[in-house]
Design a binder for these strands. Structure first.
Lengths: 240, 240
DNA sequence: TAGTGGTCTAGACCACTAT
DNA sequence: TAGTGGTCTAGACCACTAG
């Protein structure tokens, strides 16, 4: 398998292995997992190319998880990928469990980044950030208080547009869907303010979840959430 | 790039592209990012193989993120990957923080899978599993009790070999390094047995962490860990 | 036995980079 | 201009699977 940057020669002609690759990709799109793809020698005959060229095309599709090779048997449409999961936020996370997520904005304003937030967002202290505090409910009951900090310069008009239901859906619409994140999670007890918001006694057990979410090279979100331990289990998919 | 299952022919001779690949991997291990790797034609001359064979070897290392090709310039040791984070276990996790992880095996035996463990490991109830319970310390202080369940049939000789220091390092040596995992995390209070092991009062705050780790298609590990909340923060990298 | 993917050869021309 | 990786050819033999 070889990374192809352009897919085309300088003169505009499509590369042969790309032609074969895209032909097979189209052919196989929507086919049932386990369905047979054309054999390598069939493709050699169809396209009039060398077998190594066909193999280069198929190698890419195998690496992408589209095809699967079985020696002595053939090439087949791969089983559905187990792990094309996306990073999700509270709203999407709860929806996946069949729970309706609601949010009440407690605070949404422009602030100057303090030292901690600036470092986490890879900004300079004093840069403009959006601070968004929400009380979050699942099926109507209070579950979580979340403080999110966003880099204002990446999100023009964010505060003016009316706050979105799902932060991640909004980021996705801006092409800033997080591609990976660093999370840290601790168990703790609630302080008095948190307790009041979460409708629990101070000192009750809570789950603290901090996230630093990155889209490409840019840190798009830094957040701290406090969950009622009696009402929430954090569920994460980890990839290698 | 081609997946190689065996790395060896039936007669035991190493495949040529594997020889080249491992030679380059060793050569480059510990080299500074950006350092030049041997050129393809150099390797052709060194090993007396065809260039396609060398390319197959290097393709694998490029896909793995070890090397980087720059057309017209050469092949180089890849820059540190933004996101080649591997799923880590307790040992590796603590090592990354500069903390020495130690484990004391409380129990390591063959059992028949109960309904929960069987479902989590994608086995049938009654199938043989390895149950491994460890008390885990960081820099000498008690941090965690972990119960891990492993599919015995995937790990021949595991119990006989002497328990490894790091489960994940052992799995990696067997080609079963987890590629992704589903984790669920809650905050809770310690029960009496846990409290005794963790050297805390019953009712103290703990962090519970369950993991279902998958390597390729196989579920290789299911575990439940209980951490002292006052001594441990869980740190996870999430990918989309 | 026929077909499949896995490995491998010994060349070739191209576009690109560095000197 | 010399060297690099990118693409491509036209074969070959192997181990394995299936009918």
């Amino acid at each position: 398998m070889t990374e192809t940057t352009t897919d085309r020669r300088a003169d505009g002609r499509a590369l042969k292995h790309v032609q074969v690759r895209e032909y097979v990709r189209d052919l196989v799109a929507g086919a049932a997992p386990g369905a047979a793809a054309p054999s390598e020698r069939e493709l050699v005959a169809m396209f009039g190319v060398a077998r190594m060229t066909v193999r280069q095309a198929l190698d890419t599709l195998v690496t992408e998880g589209v095809l699967e090779r079985i020696p002595g048997r053939g090439t087949f449409v791969a089983r559905p990928q187990r792990n094309r999961g996306r990073i999700s936020g509270f709203t999407e996370d709860l929806r996946r469990r069949g729970v309706l997520a609601e949010s009440q904005t407690l605070l949404a304003r422009r602030e100057q980044a303090g030292p901690g937030v600036a470092r986490a967002l890879s900004l300079t202290e004093g840069d403009a950030v959006i601070h968004w505090r929400r009380l979050r409910r699942g099926d109507g009951t209070v579950v979580c208080v979340e403080d999110a900090y966003l880099t204002e310069i990446l999100l023009p008009g964010f505060l003016q547009q009316g706050m979105p239901t799902s932060l991640y859906a909004d980021l996705e619409a801006r092409g800033l869907r997080p591609t990976w994140a660093e999370d840290s999670i601790t168990a703790d007890v609630a302080g008095p303010e948190e307790a009041a918001l979460l409708e629990i006694e101070p000192g009750s057990v809570v789950l603290r979840h901090s996230r630093r979410a990155v889209s490409g090279e840019k840190v798009v979100e830094v957040s701290r959430s406090v969950y009622r331990a009696d009402r929430f289990t954090l569920w994460l998919q980890i990839c290698g």
